[in-house]
Design a protein around this nucleic acid. Sequence first.
DNA 1: GTTAGCACTCAGTTGTTTCGAGTGCTAATT
DNA 2: AATTAGCACTCGAAACAACTGAGTGCTAAC
Lengths: 343, 343
Amino acid sequence: MLTDRQLLVLKVIVDDFIDTAQPVGSRNIAKKEQISFSPATIRNEMADLEDLGYLEKTHSSSGRIPSEKGYRYYVDNIMSPLQLSRGEVHRIRQSFSERMIELERVMQNSAHILSELTRYTTLVLGPQVYETKLKQLQIVPINQQSAIAILITDTGHVEHRSFAIPAELEHADLEKTVNILNEKLSGVPIVYLSQFIETEVKHLLQKYTNDFQKSYQLLNQALFTEQPTNLYVSGKTNILMQPEFADIDKVRSLFQIMESEDQIAPILKSEDEGLHIYIGRENKIEEMNNCTLITTTYSLGENQVGTIALLGPTRMDYAKAVSILDIWSGQMTKQLQKWFNEQ
Amino acid sequence: MLTDRQLLVLKVIVDDFIDTAQPVGSRNIAKKEQISFSPATIRNEMADLEDLGYLEKTHSSSGRIPSEKGYRYYVDNIMSPLQLSRGEVHRIRQSFSERMIELERVMQNSAHILSELTRYTTLVLGPQVYETKLKQLQIVPINQQSAIAILITDTGHVEHRSFAIPAELEHADLEKTVNILNEKLSGVPIVYLSQFIETEVKHLLQKYTNDFQKSYQLLNQALFTEQPTNLYVSGKTNILMQPEFADIDKVRSLFQIMESEDQIAPILKSEDEGLHIYIGRENKIEEMNNCTLITTTYSLGENQVGTIALLGPTRMDYAKAVSILDIWSGQMTKQLQKWFNEQ
DNA sequence: GTTAGCACTCAGTTGTTTCGAGTGCTAATT
DNA sequence: AATTAGCACTCGAAACAACTGAGTGCTAAC
């Protein structure tokens, strides 16, 4: 267990390093008002903290920087949640003020605002697709050859896709197909759609339409295209502002990671809900080993869970980042509950 | 006027520098097969080319690099269009294979493919909004409180917006309003919409709906929101691969420019159609002064013109970039014509 | 237990030297 | 008259030494 003075020294070092990105020396610590003892004393304490693994030196006669363990301790035991400014809280609230029908807009907007407030990179992962259900399907003809399908899921995902109407499909068949689809498919989980169509819809189409082949083709074009993107990244450029990314190679590899949803999505999906902090090598992606990732979840309905995360250097303003995520996820969950009940 | 030999030397230097990003010395030039004279001769030619302003030295005893004037001469008089590989042409063609209903998808897809093929950054600017006309409007109710409006313009822009249905609006009124809107608004240029509504639609609504206020509110919510994004950027990360952007500060300022549509859009809108090359300081943005921007236009209907551009270092593979843009814009214009006539 | 004092360490900066790729000029060659 | 070999010269880059200063650890005094 650390003494009070060790705690204080550790806190001052972490705070200072978060601020300046420079190793902290005993002399500078002694200058702070909170500190009432001499550099020599601090040096002794620092030596002890280093032995315990909370601090590191960049070289034998440098000041100290926090180790990953040091950050961990700071985050778990020292850090006090920051009181956000009224303006900051307002901005977060604001992003929920529009009527929420499309979850996408809210997520995109949130990503933008959070990355502006924190100056870190924001990653938002939408709710898991395998749980979402089709709520409504509309097919709007545009002209003789084409139509637009509008899909709305119970998670507020709205999507339009345009597609060609199979040539020579009779108008009556088109109408019937749409009716059948609309009636039968609402409430069906997206992942079971194709299976469900085989077992429940196919025979109806065969029975009620004149040209089954064409109707079936229509249906497939309307419903099955690529999966919608589920990951929103905002503020990538903020990474460039951090001195730890002065090296272009690091930026390059990190940017490449962030461009592929496949690599990012798994690490955002944490096992359990709530706030998680992954400091340095605690996350599994090598290119991110000098970063910290703070994730938190928001929930929509029963099991539907999405994730929002902030990515910054390990030397991150933890207090602020955590406070902002907390407020956001609280607001988000509240809003979603309200919205979910309304439906 | 340059002699044939000067032309050859200039070409070899530009080609070599495009390839290696290193100043080119007389010795290395002499080694090339195309060259049948000694380093000393080349040195004399290089000195002349430098006097004429086509070449530069990085320091007094370095090899030569092309000046902006040198690139300009190369582009205007020396460069021969590159024969693209079958695979490359195929990839470009492919991006037009889907049925085109939504211009957005095509643009996004094109941006992606071109930045992959060239390894530069691609910027696509959609057709000017002030010329586009509303082609069709559909309002699809989702539940008691909300509906989705689908707007389709004659340029193939498809957009959906969700909005709240004003409380207590009668269903009959909703239907009537939609009908009136659909009937009256198609073909109206977007920018005149609000004016047109005042003069042509307002009195109809007053006449045929019970609660004019509510209907009018509905209409405004459905039609007037932010302007859709018109600029698609792809392959920003490619910039990081260029050795001229090893300096993080340059990357930073360039990325910041590219994030704001306001700054990029004006330089993409060139006065006249066809291909344009802006080498170095020929473009007006200071942060882009060591870049080359190659733009070309595509047209849709009569006056509707969009722009696509490739952004890379001044040391760009001009021949390839130009060929690729040429092919793309040809395909695009052809497809759009076909599509436009069909409608 | 705390702190002043001091020797020691090491990154970073500055100055010096060396190396080599490249030039420009002159004189010899074709 | 055009080309080329030869050579002195230039200058960036790399390698190395000297110097500086912020910082440490240890010891002895307070």
